[in-house]
């Protein structure tokens, strides 16, 4: 499968990744080979097969609606690269 620059850029955008030119070139080749290999799946007759999204046959696993104590704020924020006023911080983000 041939992967063009546009597709690599689209995947970078979707993945929030920015590759160097060399990485892009390598990605074109590797992804082309791998996706080409994945295309072997097209030879498989899957007519009428629903598809398995989960290996377990279970269903209906619930928790009851009961409030439990939340975590201490310090533990939740403890790994944050930046915090302020009990909040996580990101660069100015406006809609």
């Amino acid at each position: 499968m041939t992967i063009d620059d546009g597709l690599i850029q689209y995947l970078e955008e979707l993945s929030k990744l920015r590759l160097t030119e060399a990485e892009q070139a390598a990605a074109r080749e590797d992804l082309g080979k791998i996706l080409g290999y994945m295309q072997t799946l097209s030879a498989l007759d899957t007519e009428g097969v629903e598809g398995l999204s989960h290996p377990l046959a279970n269903e209906n696993v619930f928790r009851e609606d009961a409030a439990r104590p939340s975590a201490a704020r310090e533990t939740i924020l403890g790994n944050a690269p930046r915090q302020k006023g009990g909040c996580f911080v990101v660069p100015k983000t406006v809609e």
């Binding site: 996580f88 911080v89 100015k92 406006v94």
Partner: peptide
Amino acid sequence: KLIHDPWEDCTLVDF
């Protein structure tokens, strides 16, 4: 919820 922080011109995140 995102809260604008005018002091540092950044955005605070409250989950």
